[in-house]
């Protein structure tokens, strides 16, 4: 494998957890719920996946447990905000704190334990074609899954009737309720999907990206996923662009640092965050389009009179 292919592969790997989490949060937010607990859900997904893999040695089961753990903690959030009508911002922040703590306490015994990374797809012949081979066929299965899920979410939101209903609920829950759609049930579903996706994104970290357990190993990726959704003005294509941009700059600055450029490493580490947000803000300046894509009722408590 030549150098370019290796760099591109690592870019994609760095982007994948972000893509999972942001795709999930996109669906949650489109239904009108702002879940700020992405970071916490990712960590719970990560520790769930790692402990399962460590105990059973089965990476596929570990992926499922990671997604399930993310969905499970997101349902706590859904119950609090949708059924008990708590404030979504405060509850989301609490969920992150909860996730950080829970993952650290479960993962205590695993710190430093190495893990066999997920196998890469290898198609004899095809995977050996220079550059294109590894780039198209040389990833682990989760990378393909993340892109398929994003495309599926796009199709669901913009080409299917349930997706239209979900967008309508996020746009005006009062109107959706008046026409007769089960607002709360739809939002439960959207939150659970967001949680499962965050769990997957978290699971990717110890299973494939850095195959070991490190406390707090998401390192703010949950927050950047949240920011991605907003700065991508809730459009799936731009979420993909933003995630890969973030991955690209992450890897680029690592190589620049390794090359011994005389800039403080802390400054370099800021670059992916700055670059992603700057680019997305620049391409998404059109206020009309923002209003068309932003879910108007996001974060608002829905309390129907019955």
């Amino acid at each position: 494998m030549d150098f370019t292919a290796a760099v591109l592969l690592s870019v994609i790997a760095a982007a994948t957890p972000l893509l999972f989490a942001a795709t999930g949060e996109l669906v949650t937010e489109k239904s009108g719920v702002l879940n700020l607990g992405v970071e916490g859900m990712m960590l719970v997904g990560a520790v769930g996946a790692f402990s399962t893999a460590a105990a059973t040695g089965n990476p596929w089961l570990a992926i499922l447990v990671g997604a399930g753990a993310g969905a499970a903690v997101s349902l706590i959030f859904a119950f609090l905000t949708l059924s008990l009508l708590t404030n979504q911002v405060a509850t989301g922040l609490a969920l992150t704190l909860f996730g950080v703590g829970l993952s650290a306490s479960i993962g205590q015994g695993f710190v430093g334990t190495p893990m066999r990374p997920l196998p890469k797809l290898a198609i004899p012949g095809l995977s050996e074609v220079p550059l294109i081979g590894p780039l198209l066929f040389g990833h682990d299965p989760l990378v393909y899954l993340s892109i398929l899920l994003l495309a599926g979410v796009w199709r669901f939101l913009y080409r299917s009737r349930p997706g239209l209903v979900l967008r309508a609920v996020g746009e005006s829950h009062e109107a959706a309720h008046a026409i007769g759609y089960p607002v709360i049930a739809i939002r439960y579903g959207a939150v659970a999907f967001g949680g499962a996706m965050a769990g997957l994104g978290g699971a990717y970290l110890p299973l494939a990206y850095t195959p070991m357990w490190i406390e707090n190993m998401t390192a703010g990726r949950g927050w950047i996923a949240l920011a991605l959704v907003v700065f991508a003005t809730w459009r799936p294509g731009r979420v993909l662009l933003g995630a890969y941009l973030f991955g690209g700059v992450t890897i680029l600055q690592l190589h620049v640092q390794a090359g011994g450029v005389g800039v403080a490493s802390q400054l370099m580490s800021m670059l992916p965050y700055l670059a992603t947000i700057a680019v997305l803000v620049l391409i998404s300046r059109d206020a009309t389009r923002i209003r068309l894509n932003a879910p108007a009722d996001i974060g608002k408590v829905f309390h129907p009179q019955a």
Partner: peptide, 16 residues
């Protein structure tokens, strides 16, 4: 009105 501002006329009607 129980209309959704960011959706088209046809989408709004489909929802009802």
């Amino acid at each position: 009105f129980s209309l959704f501002e960011s959706l088209t006329v046809a989408e709004n009607i489909a929802l009802g």
